[in-house]
Design a binder for these strands. Structure first.
Lengths: 357, 357
DNA sequence: CTGAAAGCGCTTACAG
DNA sequence: CTGAAAGCGCTTACAG
């Protein structure tokens, strides 16, 4: 047994240590300390089945004792792939973005992967080139695409070409199942319709999100389908196009509330626009829900900060994010709760009420 | 000249390429193509002055022609430092978080650095150990700490120990200048006070944020100082402690508005709480600003979504983030706009008005 | 089941 | 001003 094989030649004895006098243990230290080759340590790290149990236990003990964690950078270089997950997004809503990040982080926790955020602009001429440079340069393990980036088939095509795994989050299945987490916004639209119908409303209007968001169409589709079941059909002028922003909600509200006969209920593609309609109603001297019922979508914080608090449809953004990350990493969940947990659910508050007499 | 030195032996001829039939150029390809050693290419990449102009130009031409970009992972391994910047935060406000991220990304753009997000919980028993593991494992180039993590001296101490550069974002200078971006919340508090005074108010109350946030004290301090200049002093009961949340704003509003005599103006530590006070006033049948003036702080989106839109103090979060990232990377700005651009500014909207007759 | 050699794409001493 | 050697901390073939 050589000197270099004795326990005393441990990392702490090193004089090349950084601040604090300690150097992080490397695979070589662990190998030497466990009396095996670094290749065998590597096998343990990578959970190879071809290691004798006794050997594995010895190595794991040394790893635990030294608090060794393999260097992701070195591992990445050898693997030709980093341990980084990218979130590429253009969603303008801060709460959506933060919830999604938290969800992704939930799914990544304990895996050793980290989250790199990458906002983008779909209308930029260098949009695709930027994404390609980002993914290739960082050798991303995979990326998660929330709407509306997720709805751009060019991005999926590009990712396929450069061999980067990806998960698209969207309101409808627009790729192979292994690349999708589906939010089922359609169901949410239907829930809003049934709630509004149950309150007796018949003169109903819809403020849609921008056509560039798939969710706009799904929320509307689900809403119209459920109305149809009750024998109601929205005419073209019952539908006004907004932009998912507060200001567009005010503008659309101004248009709808000036009509006569006035709609008694307005379903809005998201909470921002619903808050805008509230504003518009106030300007027009109309009470909510006394004169008009307003229903939103998302159940973001704004839904509770306005007056009256919004009846809305909650989307489990954080849960969806967690599932996307787990799917990307190939984590198998004991119970496949996928369908149920991504479904939206109605939250009844005070902005909806019976049809005015 | 050997065959391997001819242009035809370029990366595209490789048959080991990934999907798309291309392999990314490496430093070896560039060296061969330019007829120099890879060390010299490395010098060009790292902007070493010890390269003849002619040589440099030749290499740069080859780099441009092949669209070569050095592998950050390999570079990081050799440098013992990654090209990753961490944002370690516990701020609960989504808009703050997103604005800060956008600002950091502004400052990082074009530098080759990427942003890794890392929310944390200051009350967790593993708080410091988690940060240490994160920073050391990823060999972070540096980290940015927004409030309230930035206010925790244990974090700064830890970062110093492990030799990781950091920038603390806070409302007051609590570290060496090279580690600080200061937001000067104190000035914002004073601006709010002067505005309220100019409207003739004398019965004034303050809803403070949680004591764990330094900004709570700064905003209050600036507010009280400016009141003092006008000969006004807040008594203990004029100050109510909230928690920076909408709900706490409602609760504090309920307390203050039930008093008699009632305050004619309430300055709130942030917009969330101001929105809560609006809610409370509505419940009490009080009009804003007819019966009571309400002023917030931050100018986040909620300030414009409530009714009436809030008079508030805008903090340039995104700008501050950009400056933090630039400072971390050591970017020198032509004009040192530091002081002026981090200063808050008053935004007058409709929630403030003259003292009721 | 285990290991010695070569390599991932860069940089740091060390020469010249 | 430029380069050959060794090394960063891992993994992938290839042997045995």
């Amino acid at each position: 047994m050589t000197a270099s094989n004795t326990p005393s030649s441990n990392p702490d004895d090193s004089e090349t240590g950084v601040e604090g006098g300690r150097r992080r243990a490397t695979i070589n230290d662990i190998a030497r300390l466990a009396g095996v080759s670094k290749k065998t340590v590597s096998r343990v790290i990578n959970q190879s089945p071809f290691v004798r149990d006794e050997t594995r236990e010895r190595i794991e003990a040394v790893i635990a004792e030294w608090g060794y964690a393999p260097d992701p950078q070195a591992r990445g270089l050898a693997f030709r792939r980093s341990f980084l997950i990218g979130m590429i997004y253009d969603n303008p809503n801060p709460q959506y973005v933060v919830n999604m990040q938290l969800g992704l982080l939930d799914g990544l926790r304990g895996s050793g992967f980290e989250l790199v955020v990458h906002p983008c602009d779909r209308s930029s001429p260098t949009f695709l080139a930027d994404i390609r440079a980002f993914v290739e340069r960082q050798k991303l393990f995979g990326v998660v695409l929330p709407p509306s980036v997720s709805e751009d088939d060019r991005v999926a095509k590009l990712l396929n070409e450069i061999g980067c795994s990806y998960i698209r989050i969207a309101s409808v299945e627009l790729d192979k199942p292994e690349h999708m987490i589906v939010g089922h916004d359609r169901l949410g639209g239907a829930q809003a319709a049934r709630h509004i119908l149950s309150l007796g409303h018949r003169r109903i209007a819809f403020i849609s999100g921008p056509a560039t968001f798939r969710s706009s169409h799904e929320r509307r589709g689900g809403f119209e389908d459920a109305l149809a079941e009750a024998g109601l059909k929205l005419s073209d002028e019952d539908i006004v196009q907004g932009g998912y922003t507060f200001e567009s909600g005010v503008a659309c509200g101004d248009v709808l509330l000036a009509r006569s006969p006035r709609p008694t209920a307005i379903f809005c593609g998201n909470d921002e626009m619903a808050a805008g309609v509230l504003q518009s109603a106030r300007k027009a001297g109309l009470s909510v829900p006394g004169d008009v019922t307003v229903v939103g979508f998302d159940d973001f914080q704004i839904a509770q900060a306005v007056w009256p608090p919004l009846t809305t449809v909650r989307t489990p953004t954080r849960e969806i994010g967690r599932m996307a990350a787990e799917k990307l990493l190939g984590v198998e969940r004991p119970e496949p709760r996928d369908l149920t947990t991504t479904e939206p659910s109605l939250v009844v508050r005070e902005s909806s009420g019976p049809v005015p007499a």
